[in-house]
Design a protein around this nucleic acid. Structure first.
Length: 800
RNA sequence: GCGGGUAUGGCGGAAUUGGCAGACGCGAUGGAUUUAGGAUCCAUUGGGAAUCCGUGCAGGUUCAAGUCCUGUUACCCGUACCA
């Protein structure tokens, strides 16, 4: 059959749309299946082939599920708030709304050209009022429950984008958007108390089926550690200096303390500190250092001793000095540490530089040469002396601290609270009012959505305030509580807000009464299978699990974990093996591929190019192989003859059905396609195929190349749409051949292969092997030491 | 530094989990067809002076190792003074 994709592909896309073939039905009697892919950020550049790979995996799974009789929800939408759009708007003078609409249109047409089986009736756009109304609603619920707070703190600030960034958005000290160096700035910002959910986020991982490395990254990100808080007395004042340590057992080895330069105890005791000027100077110096400089100077410790404050070691009673140094962070623990130079590398380096005593408390190392961080017997440690087990000595010390009332067991997390605002225009307005009389007042629920005003100028302010601050009609309002004059919060939410709950809105995207109907949530949740990029494992995934768990605690959703299963696709690299990027000019546009090769070839190729989870370079000539493959399938119509079965092909077809069915479940799409290619080669060898057999193959290829499949299905007289036909079943008994080829080894070296009946008994198999013309002379006259027979696979005869 | 991963032909990658290494595809070579190119079809394609050697390197376990164990090297990803 001559196959013209340019005519066939639009034809079937239209038919699917007319038939509403991929509509998910709420509360259907069929079993449900919810497949989710990460919705795209609609950038001006349009999609690239990486998007196609990201969606093709679950596209195949979704199509297979439908054919298996499931009621499938496979939605798509757009995560459209964000800086690139706003920056583009500033540059061109276009309104972000117009830019977004244009980009969404472009993405939509690209997605439709590829023939993805999304339910287009459920598209969500995070920037629409109907959507962000509920983003604001969830925010207010969090506010109500005390999970939103405002604090003046050192924040990550990008001087180029002029925004405050979350910890997650400034990994490595670089702005996630423009890659400039981040500076630390003191600012009043909004936080979501995600740390309150740290333990739940950690424990929830036990209930879900995520890839092991996905789980591991989340565990590391949460970064739970257990240890103890200890309150050190100060000699000069009646105040305690509280520290956190994971090694309370080394307390006898503490010879000094270090606090962060920003630690409040300094401000509180300015009068008492003799060298306050030196401390101020040091603090200022640290603030100027970029994250990059800080990490570069890791080995070289700096600091200043506080003159006028002295601590007392609570177990040895010795007086010890206190220093400030930037190797202690205000953001972790209590911003103060007890230093044990004998057994901590950083403390050791600091002690050496400042000439502080180093006291060994764990035997086993040479503390003159460096810190000893291994295990060993406790020494110089009073009641701990002689203990050799770390766990025991830690437990014993915590017991002591608790009895004496100077400390207690404690838990810390690396994860920090989520800095939840941006000083930018293109985001969800934060629904809060600042009232001179009442303070911080939430916008009442019935006033949602708090609309983003339509303005002409989106330039951020120089002082780091939002463009909204310049819109008087937005800023000035009445206090919802007292009715007096008040001002609105002018910051907007960060990009990650809208994507934190989008999978819930897909379930009921047009609901005006609630973010989603409870019955529908009960039916569809959880997401059965979520696929996306590894880059979102620590941010988007943690955030959205947090929001979902919050809604669960509120009783708004029926399950505590949103995603039952999570997988990740690998990148598509440019033809040069480098990561695709506009600047390198190695980006492949899916439209160009569809123009030349067609959508089916593109879909098949992105899944065939290699292991789905690994990165693989784009190779156009390799894609030709997929083109040939699909054309050769179309040509099979010329080989159709007779009915019943082609005996030679029967088991090959059953094997392929099994292989393809199982491989799809494991995302081994490359081998699934390879097995269909192998079957195709076999069919051409045989030279004929029955209509029924071909229709089986057509249904197998349908999730990968649905346009071709539909055309062939129609041509062969198939009923209805191939996309909704039943997925082929295999008969296990027919996947085995009556005779099998068995390898025969002598002393582990391959010497012959013989044909044996399937499951031939061991004795029979070995006798047949020995009788083989190539084997007989090698065994004759030798002593047989051992005979191994692995049924249907291999025989090994050991001779001497 | 720490955590995770990878290493197989000229290339992308397979290998039912310890059982014939190199499936499938690309590329290449030869042939057919074609005025020519392209496309298509057929054959060959890990190396080799040939019962041998081959899965980053060095050992080990086993009848049998790409797969398991010990050591080692290189690269990739994440994270980073986390007390």
């Amino acid at each position: 059959m001559k196959y013209d994709f340019k005519q066939v592909e639009p034809k079937w896309q239209k038919k699917w749309e007319e038939a509403e073939a991929f509509r998910a039905v709420d509360n259907s009697p069929k079993p449900k299946y919810y497949t989710l892919v990460e919705f795209p950020y609609p950038s001006g550049a349009g999609m690239h082939v990486g998007h196609i790979k990201a969606y093709s995996g679950l596209e195949v799974v979704s199509r297979k599920r439908r054919m298996q009789g499931y009621n499938v929800l496979f939605p798509i939408g757009f995560d459209a708030y964000g800086l690139p759009t706003e920056n583009y708007a500033i540059k061109t003078g276009m309104h972000p709304r117009a830019v977004t609409d244009r980009n969404i249109e472009k993405f939509t047409s690209q997605l439709k050209r590829v023939g993805f089986s999304f339910d287009w009736s459920r598209v969500v756009d995070t920037t629409e009022e109907d959507y962000y109304r509920w983003t604001q609603w969830i925010f207010l619920k969090m506010f109500e429950k005390g999970l939103v707070f405002r604090d003046t703190a050192l924040v990550n600030y990008c001087p180029s984008c002029k925004v405050v960034l979350s910890n997650e958005d400034s990994q490595g000290g670089k702005c996630d958007i423009c890659h400039s160096d981040i500076v630390q700035k003191s600012k009043a910002v909004w936080y979501l108390r995600i740390t309150e959910y740290a333990d739940k986020l950690l424990q929830g991982l036990d209930e879900v089926d995520y890839l092991p490395n996905v789980k591991q990254q989340q565990i590391n990100w949460i970064g739970k550690s257990t240890g103890a808080f200890v309150n050190f007395s100060l000699k000069e004042i009646d105040e305690k200096l509280r520290i956190y340590t994971t090694r309370p057992d080394t307390l006898f080895g503490v010879t000094f303390m270090v606090i962060a330069p920003e630690h409040p105890i300094i401000e509180a005791n300015r009068d008492r500190i003799a060298n306050i000027d030196a401390l101020d100077a040091y603090k200022e110096e640290c603030a100027k250092k970029t994250e990059f400089e800080r990490t570069q100077l890791v080995k070289d410790k700096t600091g200043v001793r506080i003159e006028g404050l002295t601590a007392v070691n609570p177990v040895s009673g010795k007086e010890i000095p206190i220093y400030i140094s930037d190797y202690v962070m205000m953001g972790y623990g209590t911003g103060a540490i007890m230093a044990v130079p004998a057994h901590d590398e950083r403390d050791w380096a600091f002690a050496k530089k400042f000439g502080i005593d180093i006291v060994e408390v764990i035997k086993g190392g040479d503390i003159a040469a460096g810190a000893y961080t291994g295990d060993g017997e406790m020494v110089n440690s009073g009641f701990l002396n002689g203990l050799t087990n770390k766990k025991d000595s830690i437990a014993r010390m915590i017991e002591h601290l608790t009895e004496q009332g100077i400390g207690e067991m404690g838990v810390q997390y690396k994860m920090k609270d989520w800095a939840f605002n941006r000083q930018r225009y293109w985001g969800e307005p934060i629904p809060i009012v600042h009232c001179p009389a009442c303070g911080i007042v939430p916008v009442p629920y019935n006033e949602l959505p708090l609309k983003l005003p339509n303005v002409k100028n989106f330039e951020p302010g120089e002082g780091g305030e939002s463009p909204l601050a310049k819109i008087d009609s937005f800023v000035n309002c009445k206090c919802p509580k007292c009715g007096g004059d008040a001002k609105r919060e002018t910051d907007t939410m960060p990009q990650w807000a809208g994507s934190s709950w989008y999978f819930l809105r897909y379930i009921d995207p047009h609901n005006n009464e609630a973010f989603a109907d409870r019955e529908k949530l009960n039916y569809w949740l959880p997401v059965d299978w979520y696929n996306g990029g590894m880059e979102h494992v620590t941010r988007h995934m943690i955030y959205s699990r947090f929001w979902h768990k919050f809604l669960y605690d509120l009783g708004e959703v029926p399950v505590s974990e949103p995603y039952a299963k999570r997988t990740a696709q690998g990148l598509i690299l440019g033809p040069d093996g480098e990561k695709m990027s506009k600047s390198k000019g190695n980006v492949v546009d899916p439209n160009d591929v569809v123009d030349v090769f067609g959508a089916d070839v593109l879909r098949t190729y992105v899944l065939f190019m290699g292991d789905y989870g690994s990165a693989a370079p784009w190779n156009e000539s390799s894609m030709k192989g997929c083109k040939r493959f699909l054309e050769r399938i179309a040509d099979l119509t010329d080989l159709v003859s007779g009915s019943g079965v082609t005996p030679k092909l029967e088991s090959a077809i059953h094997k392929t059905v099994k292989k393809v069915s199982l491989d799809i479940e494991e995302m081994k799409f490359n081998t699934a396609i390879a097995s269909m290619m192998a079957l195709l080669n076999e069919i051409y060898d045989v030279g004929s195929i029955t209509k029924e057999e071909l229709m089986t193959l057509v249904r197998l290829i349908c999730p990968f190349a649905p346009h071709l499949a539909e055309e062939l299905w129609e041509n062969l007289g198939g009923e209805g749409l191939c996309s909704l036909a039943a997925w082929p079943e295999w008969d296990e008994a027919k996947t085995v051949d009556s005779t099998v080829e068995v390898a025969v080894q002598i002393n582990g070296k391959l010497r012959a292969t013989i044909q044996l009946p399937f499951n031939a008994p061991k004795e029979e198999a070995i006798a047949a092997a020995k009788a083989d013309a190539k084997i007989a002379p090698l065994v004759e006259g030798k002593t047989v030491i051992k005979e191994i027979s692995i049924p249907n696979k291999i025989i090994n005869i050991v001779v001497k």
